[in-house]
Design a protein around this nucleic acid. Structure first.
Lengths: 203, 203
DNA sequence: TAAATTTTTGTATGTGCGTTCAGTTTTTTG
DNA sequence: CAAAAAACTGAACGCACATACAAAAATTTA
């Protein structure tokens, strides 16, 4: 009993340390510059430890991406919980996609690399799909019963695309704040909707 | 005389063949899967040839990216030349950013990889900057003297971001045609402008 | 055609990587 | 406190890669 709980605690700790080290190495050296040696060094451990706690390098990478995705999704979920009107939920979804402290060049770049790698990596592609499905379903919860299907599709695509584009721009170092970005996406949402639709969403 | 001109012709030919081979390998195996051996094999040459015509692998990659960028820029330029009104120029710029036959998942993915690599590769970053500067300057030529500076900045950012976002989505395999994408960006442009502004642009 | 030059080949070399594993240290157990 | 188990080490291995290079083939020159 004690044995298992301790073992689990250490294991989880080390795994998390390695994931976070991997994340830091990734930020500094890019996807190509991530070596097991560097990751372990960054974590203050010996090179062999990685195989002890993970199946291999690919495993650490995947865990890292999954963790990041979870953080982003949670940011949206916590914002959504507090909103009362449909429009409030829309604001929460958009703002949640530009979390303070996470909407930074290196993190954006990490996400970009994963997008690119999705083309040749099934596991990444799956994470990606889950992420987009969640965004779309969140947006659907805002516009359901207010917009006809075709229009919803157009607006959801426009907003989702905008969010992606802003992250991409952020990855190149463009000086965008979470506030700027949220405001820009919202302004597009406002522009694309009729006054009547906006009123209905605000109710 | 004959000697030099022949030599140059062969040299340019081989370089181009290698660049195109590199491009095909890139499409199929991603940035990480590009090896000199594969490139040369794809070009139907022996592995050593690469060092003969290029400084190294990095050199081929850079040439490849530069060529792609040039193709995209030329697509825009040729469209721009035919437009007569400001609005026509706007349409040309946007449509030119989704060229038929180039707006495809593998090409989009290539571009994405380069974006990601720009973070740790100075030369890529420079190409990127040139590309964005060109887009911005093209958009400026449309809105100059019609919109105040702050508004131009907002709209240019919105449209540029949208274009980037659509390419990113295309990279993930989303079923977007050049026509869909152009229409979506234009619809956002229409929505963001006032009726008076649109009239002035159409003149 | 013979010499000279350019072009191409395929192997060799060195480097850096992920992973393994026998052994060592640390922690837990009884 | 010993015995056992877990956590960890770091050197060693094999592999894939970029690049270099000497030799060969093809082409041009005179």
């Amino acid at each position: 009993m004690t044995k298992i709980s301790f073992r689990t605690r250490i294991e989880d700790l080390r795994r998390r340390e390695l994931i976070e080290a991997a994340h830091r190495v990734f930020m500094q050296h890019g996807l190509g510059g991530m070596t097991t040696k560097r990751i372990c060094e960054e974590a203050g451990m010996s090179p062999g430890i990685l195989s002890y706690y993970f199946k291999g390098k690919e495993d650490v990478l995947f865990a890292m991406v999954r963790l990041n995705n979870r953080l982003l999704m949670e940011a949206v979920a916590s914002g959504l919980a507090q909103a009362t009107t449909r429009w409030g939920r829309l604001e929460a979804i958009i703002a949640g996609n530009f979390p303070e402290g996470l909407f930074e060049p290196n993190i954006a770049n990490a996400w970009l690399s994963v997008c690119a790698a999705s083309a040749t990596n099934q596991r990444y592609a799956r994470l990606q799909r889950i992420f987009y499905a969640r965004l779309k379903s969140n947006l659907a919860s805002v516009f359901r019963d207010v917009l006809p299907d075709a229009r919803f599709k157009q607006i959801a695509l426009a907003l989702g695309t905008m969010i992606d584009g802003l992250w991409l721009r952020r990855a190149t170092g463009e000086a965008l704040t979470p506030q700027d970005s949220t405001a820009l996406v919202l302004s597009v949402a406002v522009a694309l909707l009729t006054e009547a639709e906006r009123a209905e969403l605000a109710a």
